[in-house]
Simulated assay, not measured.
Amino acid sequence: MAKIVVIGGTGLIGSKVVANLTEHGHEAVAASPNTGVNSLTGEGLDEVLIGADTVVDVSNSPSFAPDDVMEFFTTSTSNLLAAEVEAGVEHHVALTIVGTNRPQHIGYFAAKVAQEKLIRDSGIAYSLVHATQFFEFVGSIADISTEGDTVTLPGALIQPIAADDVATAVARSAVGVPMGDIEIAGPEAFGMDEFARRALAFRGDPRTVVRDDSAPYYGAVIEERTLIPVEGAQIFKTTLEEWLPRNPPRK
């Protein structure tokens, strides 16, 4: 079976990817700063990539400030790709976002665009898994959009997906042939305001959700269809109603 190194392998998605790959008999190595591998500084990369067939990058910036996130993704990805070339890695898989190829002014997306370009230009065969927003982030989306007891969000469409399904898609990509760009999404599209409204209501959160299409999403005003997948995307089955009872809010 293949040796697959998962950068960010102890995080939300990475730990699930490692478990999925291990269950199917692959040698999956969780690589992150707390296991001695730091793609931002380069620490431990040469050692962990010895004998690796595939690298999966699901790492994330600790800061979402535009300059910080750009620095993280460009530096980390450059270090990783250079080490992969030296090690003879044959397949690079990276988790990215639906909407990076569409007009928008989100700083985080700009950093992911820069990361994607580095991967495409690297000469290493690749799979870029573009995911829609995760169900798991509904709380943080509501929190950053809250003033007093009111959550103000646009009605721009999203088609959110469960983290378990994202991990399944990434693991499948890691053991398959390089596919270039693919998109994955959950089964339902609804307005961002409705996404938050349904989740908060289920959880008994007393905040009121108000729709305002001029309200920013992570600092930018977005178009109605920027964040939903194109035709031909892989659609996973987990719905919001199925996900909510399994995932109570953290205390």
Rank of each mutant, 00 (worst) to 15 (best):
Ala169Asn: 15
Ile184Pro: 05
Ala169Gln: 15
Ala162Glu: 04
Phe190Gly: 06
Ile182Leu: 09
Pro178Trp: 05
Pro187Val: 13
Gly155Cys: 02
Ala199Glu: 14
Val166Arg: 12
Ile182Trp: 01
Ala174Val: 06
Gly155Lys: 11
Leu153Gln: 11
Gly176Ile: 05
Ile184Trp: 10
Ala171Asn: 14
Leu200Ile: 09
Ala189Leu: 05
Ala156Leu: 06
Leu153Ile: 14
Arg172Ile: 07
Ala201Thr: 12
Pro154Tyr: 06
Asp181Met: 00
Glu188Thr: 09
Glu183Thr: 08
Pro154Gln: 05
Ile161Tyr: 03
Ile184Cys: 02
Ala185Trp: 11
Ala162Thr: 01
Gly186Trp: 00
Ala174Ser: 11
Ala162Phe: 01
Ala169Asp: 15
Gly155Thr: 08
Thr150Gly: 02
Thr168Gly: 04
Phe195Met: 12
Gln159Asn: 07
Glu188Val: 06
Ala163Ile: 01
Asp165Gly: 04
Thr168Ala: 13
Phe202Tyr: 15
Ile158Met: 07
Ala196Trp: 09
Pro178Asn: 10
Ala201Asn: 13
Asp181Trp: 01
Val170Lys: 14
Phe190Tyr: 14
Ala189Gln: 11
Gly186Pro: 01
Asp193Thr: 09
Gly155Ala: 10
Phe190Asn: 04
Ala171Thr: 11
Gly186Lys: 00
Met179Ile: 00
Thr150Ile: 13
Asp181Pro: 07
Gly180Thr: 02
Gly176Ala: 14
Ala167Asn: 10
Pro178Ile: 04
Arg172Ala: 13
Leu157Asp: 01
Arg197Val: 11
Asp181Ala: 11
Ala162Ile: 01
Ile182Val: 15
Gly186Gln: 03
Leu200Thr: 14
Asp164Cys: 00
Asp164Trp: 00
Pro178Ala: 13
Val177Trp: 05
Ala189Trp: 04
Gly186Thr: 04
